Amino acid sequence: MDVRDLSYLQAIIRTGSVTAAADEVGRTAPAITKAIRRLEQETGTALFRRAGRGIEPTEAALFLTRRTQGMTEQLQIIRRQLTEISRGQHGHIRLGVAATMAAIFLPGFLSDLSVRHPNISVSVINGMNDVLRAALREGEIDIALGVIDRPDEGGIETLVITEDQVRIAASLRHRLQGRPLAAADLSGESWLLPARGVAMRQWLDAAFTASGLPAPIAQIETNSIAVLEDLIAGSDHLSFVSGLKMRLPHVASRIGPLRIEGFTMRRQIGATWLQGAEDQPTVALVIERLRAGSSVIRDGAAPA
Rank of each mutant, 00 (worst) to 15 (best):
V3L: 14
D5Y: 00
I12C: 00
T15Q: 01
G16W: 07
S17A: 07
A20L: 03
A22Q: 03
D23C: 06
A29G: 00
P30S: 10
I36D: 02
L39A: 08
E40Y: 06
Q41H: 14
G44H: 03
G44D: 03
F48C: 02
R50D: 08
R50A: 11
G54P: 04
E56V: 12
P57K: 06
A61H: 06
A61K: 04
F63A: 13
L64K: 01
T65Y: 06
T68G: 09
Q69W: 09
M71A: 13
E73M: 13
I77K: 14
I78W: 12
I78N: 11
I78Q: 13
S86I: 07
Q89V: 07
Q89L: 13
H90E: 11
H90S: 15
G91W: 06
I93D: 04
L95Y: 08
L95R: 07
G96K: 01
G96R: 02
T100Y: 05
A103E: 03
L110G: 06
R116T: 10
H117E: 09
I120K: 09
I120V: 09
V122I: 11
G127H: 01
N129P: 02
D130C: 01
V131K: 11
L132K: 01
R133C: 01
A134G: 12
D142A: 01
A144F: 04
A144E: 02
I148R: 02
I148N: 03
R150F: 14
P151Y: 06
G154H: 11
G154A: 12
I156L: 15
T158M: 04
L159Y: 01
I161Q: 08
I161L: 10
R167A: 08
L172N: 12
H174R: 00
H174I: 06
L176W: 02
Q177I: 11
R179E: 05
R179Y: 09
R179A: 04
P180T: 14
A184W: 09
G188A: 00
L193R: 08
P194Q: 13
A195L: 12
A199F: 13
Q202H: 08
T209P: 03
L213I: 04
L213H: 08
P214N: 07
A215L: 04
I217R: 15
I217V: 15
E221I: 03
S224W: 09
A226S: 15
A226N: 14
V227H: 14
E229I: 11
D230H: 15
L231N: 10
I232Q: 06
A233K: 07
R247D: 14
L248N: 07
L248E: 11
P249W: 12
R254N: 10
P257D: 08
R259Q: 15
F263Y: 04
T264H: 04
Q268L: 15
G270W: 05
G270I: 07
A271G: 00
W273Q: 05
W273T: 01
E278K: 12
V283R: 04
E288K: 14
L290Q: 00
A292I: 13
S295C: 12
V296D: 10
I297W: 11
A302K: 15
A304H: 10
